[in-house]
Design a protein around this nucleic acid. Structure first.
Lengths: 211, 211
DNA sequence: GTCTATACTACGATAGAC
DNA sequence: GTCTATCGTAGTATAGAC
């Protein structure tokens, strides 16, 4: 649709995203990235200073995408429970549409410590976006508790549970499919994941048994 | 306590577990393992045929440990909700006591596909233990639903949520600590994690509002 | 059971021609 | 902006002495 003709930089980011999601930072060779992007290995270094910078550029791109979609979901207003429902739907849609995203995000939690230390400023950029995303949920949860529609919970622990219920789920790959008996990404299972998560919220987070 | 004097094989497994948990399969070099185990690189191949076999041996060891602890928790009987509470407590205790475990388990979901294909029979062993662990929760959830103490839910999705709430949480490392504002492994946060997860279950999974 | 030595491959990164 | 060629390092794994 809005695809014109990706320049080399975008093409590299695209194939690197898929590879990093599947194999992790250490598991991907730049040779592989270059081949799939249709370039020589050395050409990568014209666009990105190092493997670590490429990885962080990929991660940044994904985080920005998630943040934009969540921003759209939050802006429409409504009661806290409605907004939380919309955030869950939006996040799950995003994760289901781009299967690499969930794995990349979850892996990023483990792999930030084996990046070369020099990565510096690019690290800070991804950290800032992460903080922005977390702040959206944090604010929403506190508002809901203040209004008395959510029961009193630890905000941090609740965010962790929500991430587990969404990002982990769609990152679980073959294991999750074994558990559900079919593809995590089938429209039926995506729909059901939304229902199950929202039902858990409505029963488990609501102060009264509102639905 | 029951530590006598670990033979080389156990020492290798021990240091490899920590390294694989931290860096992942591709991120660990056998040189590193050998150094930390106090051996030459080549000596590893006397105990394990290949890096993949070593990895699978580490994973198997961890899965067996989890399975044994969950078996202990399940055997004591009681109502489904009580048993589920005990399983959550037991699992969280296990993950908190051995910080490498959660990361290793979560990583194993992503990394099984970049193991050399030859690994064959050892793969099946870890799969069997995984199935046994899952069957414990599966049976318990179905029993609770049959008795009417759990509301009707998708068993697969619920297991995914429980894994996310426990394994993911303790695998989240620095990110989780940023979110909670203190170490995931402090006794206070471990205690609170148990409370939050069990509260979510009691409010969100129970058919009535039993506690 | 552990060692040294070695084979072969791949890695990330750089230099410099075009 | 992409290429070929190359550097230095580290990877897994094997052979064979002790």
């Amino acid at each position: 649709m809005e695809q014109t003709a990706p320049n080399s930089r975008d093409k590299i980011l695209e194939v690197a995203e898929a590879l990093f999601a599947r194999r992790g930072f250490a598991g991907v060779g730049l040779r592989q990235v270059a081949d799939q992007a249709g370039l020589g290995k050395s050409s990568l270094f014209h666009h990105f200073r190092s493997k670590a910078q490429l990885y962080l550029a990929v991660l940044d791109r994904v985080l920005v995408g998630i943040d934009e979609r969540l921003a759209g979901a939050a802006e429409t207003g409504g009661a806290p429970m409605q907004r939380l429902d919309r955030m869950v739907d939006t996040l799950i849609d995003a994760l289901a549409e781009q299967p690499a995203t969930a794995r990349l995000l979850l892996r990023s939690l483990f792999e930030e410590d084996d990046l070369p230390a020099e990565a510096g400023s690019a690290q800070e950029a991804t950290d800032r976006i992460t903080q922005r995303i977390l702040a959206r949920i944090d604010t929403l949860l506190r508002e809901g508790m203040k209004e008395g529609v959510f029961r009193p919970v630890s905000v941090g622990h609740t965010i962790q549970t929500l991430i587990g219920a969404t990002v982990y789920h769609f990152a679980s790959g073959e294991f999750g499919e074994l558990l559900l008996g079919r593809s995590l990404l089938s429209s039926e299972e995506v729909r059901q994941r939304k229902e199950e998560v929202k039902a858990l919220i409505h029963h488990g987070l609501a102060a009264s048994s509102a639905s």
